[in-house]
Structure formats: structure tokens, C-alpha cells
Amino acid sequence: MQIDDQDRRLLRQYQADPTQSATELAERAGMARATCWRRLERLQESGVIKGQTAVIDWRALGYGVEVSLRISLDKTVQNAFDIVMAKARDIPEVVEIQTFLGRVDLRLSVIARDMGHYQEIYRERILTLPHIADLEALMQIASIKSSESLPL
């Protein structure tokens, strides 16, 4: 889908605050409310805007540990990817799953209340995942930049 300067302006304002009213959004984007609404609908229908989500700070809910697990799978097993991803999706503390090409096949982002809780998750849920050839855990110390916003 081609987007023009008005779409970019609209998207900048929308991603800055998706909760604002259509009137506020139109005003900030410098266009008529009806035009703004039509463009917003077109961007949603075309899949440029996928939806709105609530961003919940899991640290505020008592989760103080985040670990990134790099996993290499046994590639001799047919459907290893699908099997491991399906099982990893069932672990509530796995908040992100990414796949890669190369030595590392998957990255799981795991949150836990504390190190004891992480150790329990690791032993009972992660180490029981099938077809793991290699696993490396990276403890997150700080998040320097985390943004879903695009440079429009």
C-alpha cells in the first residue's frame, strides 16, 4: 500500500497517542475529521494499523527478572520448530518468541518474579522442551531502548 505525507502525519499522531478522539487526531494531523476518519479506516483495512494494545508494565506486577534464551534446535527432527514453538506458547512466562536463520533458531523472552521463580520455570518448563540441541541464557540487566514507534 502506498502512503502519502498526510498518511505519515496521521500515523505519527496516531502512534503517539492512539487513545485520542478522532477530532483530536484530525486536529493534530492537520486535516478534516471526516478525511482523518476515512484515512484511518483505510490504513486499518489495509493492515498498516493492526490494532491497539494496552502496554502493561510487568515489573509493576511483581516480575523483576527477564531472561533471553537463545535456543538451537536439533535439525534432524522433522517439525522441531513447530513442536517447540507450540509448547513454548503454552508457557505463560514466555512473553516473546522470535525465530532466526543461523546458529540460533529461537529466542524466548522469559519473565519471572525473582531468581527462584525463574529457576523453577527453567527447570520445569524450559528444559523439558523437546528437540533442544543448545541453549544459552542471557540475563537482562537494563533495557536501554524499547519502542514500537516507527520513524514516519
Rank of each mutant, 00 (worst) to 15 (best):
R8S: 04
R9T: 11
R9Q: 14
L10S: 03
L10P: 01
L11P: 05
R12M: 13
Q13K: 14
Y14S: 04
Y14K: 04
Q15E: 15
Q15V: 15
Q15A: 11
A16T: 15
A16F: 15
D17E: 15
D17P: 12
P18W: 09
P18Q: 11
P18K: 13
Q20W: 10
S21L: 08
T23M: 11
E24C: 06
L25G: 03
L25Y: 13
A26I: 03
E27G: 00
E27W: 01
R28Y: 12
R28W: 11
A29C: 09
M31I: 05
M31V: 00
A32D: 15
R33S: 01
R33Q: 12
T35C: 01
T35R: 01
T35L: 04
W37I: 07
W37S: 09
Q44P: 00
E45L: 11
S46A: 15
G47D: 08
G47C: 05
G47L: 03
V48A: 12
I49M: 10
K50A: 14
G51K: 08
Q52C: 01
T53P: 00
T53W: 03
T53K: 06
A54H: 10
A54P: 00
A54W: 09
V55Q: 14
I56R: 02
I56F: 03
R59S: 05
L61V: 00
L61G: 00
G64I: 06
G64C: 11
G64Y: 12
E66N: 15
E66V: 15
E66Q: 15
V67N: 04
V67G: 06
S68E: 08
L69H: 06
L69P: 08
L69Y: 03
R70N: 13
I71R: 09
I71M: 13
I71W: 04
I71F: 07
L73V: 04
L73F: 06
L73A: 08
D74G: 03
D74H: 05
K75I: 02
K75M: 10
T76S: 04
V77L: 07
Q78I: 10
Q78H: 09
Q78E: 02
Q78P: 07
A80P: 00
A80L: 00
F81G: 02
D82C: 00
I83P: 01
V84H: 03
A86L: 08
A86V: 05
K87G: 01
K87C: 04
A88F: 05
R89Y: 11
R89V: 10
R89D: 13
D90H: 02
I91N: 04
I91F: 07
P92V: 06
P92E: 08
P92W: 08
E93R: 14
E93G: 04
E93N: 14
V94E: 03
V95T: 15
